[in-house]
Each structure stands twice: as C-alpha cells, then as structure tokens.
Nucleic acid binder design. Structure first.
Lengths: 224, 224
DNA sequence: AGCGAACTTAACAAGGTCGTCAATTCCCGG
DNA sequence: CCGGGAATTGACGACCTTGTTAAGTTCGCT
C-alpha cells in the first residue's frame, strides 16, 4: 500500500537510536526469515519486511542488495543455525541404538520447533533449488549430520546391531522424510479425520514412532 | 446463477455444443495444472496460462471466475485423478504382506510419475491449506486409501502377520512421507553427494526400500 | 567545530498482475 | 433470413511490486 506517512521532523523520530548498524542488519534478517518462511519468495513483500522492522524498503536495499540476495542470506542463516545445533549433539559415547534414537529425536524436535526452517527448505525445493545454486556454502550443509550417522552406523554394524548394508544417506533421508512430513503436510493431511499434526499433534507419540521405524529397519535381520 | 460445473441439463443426442466450450475448458484446466504446479499460486500468471492455450486472460475469467476459483478447480482435478487411480488398485485378493507392498509401490510410483500433483499438494500446504478449506470435496480425498489400508491391515492382524497396534493412518502417513520426500526434497537433498533423486534417481531401489521399511515396521514383533 | 562517511527518508519510474466491460464475432433455431 | 444468446476479443483502470536516486540527518574522527 502507498505509504503516506507524514511525520513532522524532530518528533518521534528524534527519540530513535542514533546508529544501530549491525543490530538493524540482524533485525532485518530475522524479519526476513519470518516473512519468507510465511509467504514464500514471490509472496514475500519487501515492504512487509520493512514494516516488521520499523525501517523502509530502501534501507533493506542498502544493507542487502535486493530481494534475492536477502533471500540467500536468509537461507544461509537458517542452515547455519541447524548445523550448529547438530554440532551440539554428543552421540559418540552412546551405544549405537541409543545414538540413533537420539539423532532421530533431535531431528524430529528441531523440525517441530523450527517450522520456519522447514518451510524455507520446502520453498527452495519448490523453486527447484534456483537460489541455492548460487551459494557455495549451502552445498555441504547436510554433510556433518550424515557423517555423524555414518560413524554411529559403522559402530552398530561392528557390534552386529545393524544390518550390514545400511547406508547413512538412506537413513538420513528416511529420518528427514518422516520428520518433515508432520510439519510440511499438516494441512492437507491433518484434514483427514481432524487429526492434528505439526507442533499441535501428538508430538511425543510420533517422535517415538519415527525412532521405532528407523530402528526396526536398521535391525540386523534383512526383510523376510 | 449456475456458477459451478453445470453441463447440459438433459442428455439429448441432438443437442450439440455451439462452439468448443468443454474442450477449451479442459485445455485451460490442463494448462493451469502445469502452470500452478510449476510456479505456485502467487508465481503463476494468468497470462502465462492463457499463452499455453492460445486464448486470453479474459476468456479464462469467462470460464472460471478468476484466479482463485481456477486454482481450486486445479486442486480438485488432481485429487480426483489420484483417487480414481487408487480405486483401480485391487488388493483385496492379495495376501496382506503382498497387498501392503503393492500399495506402497503404487503410491511411490504415482508420486514419481505425477510430480505436478505432489508439487500442488506441497504448495497448498505452504499456503496453510488456505484455498483447500473452501472446497468441501477436498475434505475426504484421503479416506478411500486409508480405508483400503485399514482392511488390509486388519486381515494381516488376524493372521498374525502385523502387530496389533498398527494404525492405518500412521501407515499411510509413513508411506506418503517416504514417497513424497524423494520428489519434494530432491533439490536440497540431492545436492548432497550429487545423489540424484526423484524420477532420475534409483527409482527401483528406493521403492523397494520404502516397502521394506513399512513391512519391517508392521511386522508382528514390537520394537525390542 | 568541521568534514567525510555512514545512515535514513521520501518520492519517483518502470513493470507486472488482475478483473471487468463494452464491443464484436459466431452459431443455432425459428 | 434474422434475432438472440453464447463465445471471444481488445482495451482500460486500479493496484501492487521492486529498485533507484536525490536530499537530508547523524556520527566519528581530526
């Protein structure tokens, strides 16, 4: 909408902080995360982001260089966040089965608690990874968690807990698929029998269910 | 005011269409499916749809009543398609384990072969089911497949093939989650180790994998 | 204090989108 | 042949979007 805000010079704006370079940047980025996650790339409006931050569209273009670079910064930000959260996982000292269970539960909870992240990932996939291709940093985000899984699986195989042909990437994919579906498809799927999903659903039960599915599958005996 | 799909009131052999009303309607709808699936609701352009059909935007608004009603018609169309395809599944005469395997394989293949459907479902979920709520027909689309699953699972439980607490909705959710993930997340996930997914991935291997996961989970012994 | 640079604001221009309306063509039945 | 209504066209108006630019403000440093 046409911003027809007329304010006398020296009134309310005078009380504003003199300078806030990095703080403003961070605030804009946070608002952009919310807006892009909520409305997608096309649906998101620079004015809406500006409105969330008490700044103007021109200022956003001053800090970032436009809509697309801002969106890329958003993607890199949320991916960096989950990577850091994953790094806090300490599973090397757990027995393989418990380690897998912890990884599954962490991943499941992270998706439930960070719906913005999930929505951004989905949006980027809907865009066929168009923007992601331009960021080299986003190419290897999944590697740490897969390597962690690989070490745990190898330990489990050495003990005979897991089947010999278990593949870390397949396992990660199954975990992510089952964990994300609750969040991503909660509207079309939840309409079925009014069964709530996502954060409002039966989180505890479903989290245990996903862990059971993965562990049953990883078990030593191949499919009969 | 017959705004909805109202055909000729009586079936008369002599009655003929003045021009090409239904043919154009169908062509517009098909183009709209492709455009909405490709670019999402906001990203889709009515002019682009018109361009795909050698017609004009005004004509689309003549047949349908605007962008949103058209989008709803698209949703109802693709959901009707999958429901009809599912109805062709004949699993009542199969043994429970084989029946589950067939259902999984059908669902998996349908997603791979109908990426448009999957993308539309994802888009609608990203929109928080905004448009879907207005269509009463879309409220019960998942019911047939879940009921089919319920009958198969009940048979399997009676034989002792499946665990007693298996829930059809949970099973359907797991199948859908694993099947959709390949298609929906192929870009962000496929970038990992350049492992192709979706229709270009190792379809046969992954399809069998999903069936194994489901059947292992359904197996009679609970998680040990 | 004064200067340069960072920061902020308001306004503009170009482009794109959608829905509608009056006018026109086309076909069919009388 | 001709009226009438369905089908189709072109054009208009209102709205929203983004990026830029020129002017103003504030700050840090010398």
């Amino acid at each position: 909408m046409a911003t027809s805000v007329q304010l006398s010079p020296g009134r309310s704006t005078a009380m504003r902080k003199p300078k806030a370079p990095e703080a403003n940047r961070a605030r804009i980025l946070a608002a952009a995360v919310a807006e892009f996650a909520s409305r997608g790339y096309d649906g998101a409006s620079m004015d809406a982001i500006a409105a969330r931050t008490n700044t103007t569209r021109a200022m956003i273009n001053y800090y970032f260089r436009g809509k697309e670079p801002l969106y890329l910064a958003v993607l890199e930000r949320v991916y960096a966040d989950i990577r850091e959260a994953e790094s806090g996982l300490d599973v090397e000292n757990l027995e393989p089965v418990e380690a897998i269970r912890r990884i599954v539960e962490f991943t499941y909870d992270y998706y439930v608690d960070h719906e913005d992240f999930v929505r951004l990932v989905v949006a980027e996939n809907q865009a066929k990874g168009r923007h992601m291709k331009r960021s080299h940093a986003l190419r290897t985000v999944n590697r740490p968690i897969v390597e962690m899984l690989g070490r745990v699986i190898a330990r489990g195989q050495a003990r005979g807990d897991f089947r010999a042909d278990a593949d870390p990437i397949d396992v990660h994919m199954a975990i992510a698929a089952l964990g994300m579906f609750n969040v991503t498809n909660q509207y079309t799927f939840g309409s079925l029998f009014q069964r709530p999903m996502g954060a409002k659903g039966d989180v505890d039960r479903r989290r245990a269910m996903v862990a059971d599915i993965i562990l049953q599958w990883l078990g030593p005996q191949p499919a009969g």
